[in-house]
Design a protein around this nucleic acid. Sequence first.
DNA 1: ACGACATCGTTAGCAGAGCTAACGACCTGA
DNA 2: TCAGGTCGTTAGCTCTGCTAACGATGTCGT
Lengths: 151, 151
Amino acid sequence: MKSPKRERDALALADKLHSAAIHLLRHLRKEDDASGLSAPRLSALSVIVFGGPLTLGQLARAEQVKPPTMTRIVTGLEDAGLVRRKGDERDKRLTKVYATPKGQRVLMAGRARRVELLASAVKKLDARNLADLWRGAQLLRELIDSMRRAQ
Amino acid sequence: MKSPKRERDALALADKLHSAAIHLLRHLRKEDDASGLSAPRLSALSVIVFGGPLTLGQLARAEQVKPPTMTRIVTGLEDAGLVRRKGDERDKRLTKVYATPKGQRVLMAGRARRVELLASAVKKLDARNLADLWRGAQLLRELIDSMRRAQ
DNA sequence: ACGACATCGTTAGCAGAGCTAACGACCTGA
DNA sequence: TCAGGTCGTTAGCTCTGCTAACGATGTCGT
């Protein structure tokens, strides 16, 4: 059997995930605002803090964004004193981006604030549901990675 | 025991979900572009098509957006011929928004394109993982609803 | 019945994020 | 060496979000 049911289920699930992602981010965006950092800046700062010094191009690719966009995001972070640009010694075309101590502190605070609302909802789940949702999140992550690999 | 483990798990899960949502939408945004409709417009159109005629204010609340923003989104959809405004007879302050047949067609096409990439990845899952991910999506939906209710 | 207040949608004006095109600085390989 | 590629930036556009302010309409208390 060719399983049209399976086809329909895949579409329905895709739609469900898409819709959930949209609405989740809309809620969390409000918390982002409280940190004074927009979502793209917070996301880029996170990559810089955890991914060590990166060139602007690497950062743009990691964030799935074009270089001019990343230039402006980094400029905004630099103006806020969260990040510093430093030219590469070997290859003078490159601009490496480093997180400042302030950048690290702000990221941690923002991160905590951001997930607080979500985490407080998560805490209401019983152990079974928590485990199931964890597994769902893991599967979703793998799904996204497989999409990225497939381009 | 106060279960610090549970606390940490909730935070980690919240972060995982947040990150997954960001990256999922970044991938899907490319597909949105192919339809000529931005993500907010597509999302609003979806609500209009499936939620019947709505006032602009209802639409703004459904999309978690302020009225002026929704005014412009609806104007964009109207200029594209996907939607029509019509004043309410009873209460002349209200503006009802209807989907045109073209709007319905475009939504379906865009929706199919949008979820295609995701669905093709979903289809590679075996039955067990599909069921687990489905349950995860369901739990996530409920989580978001509970966040919304708690404001 | 009528005035005060509330609600709805719009306009105006701002900041931010995304894009493409074009450019200068720099590296590399023939 | 120099022709062509790579990297980051600038310029200029659109779209999305917001707040403030306003006009039109409803509603409610007196």
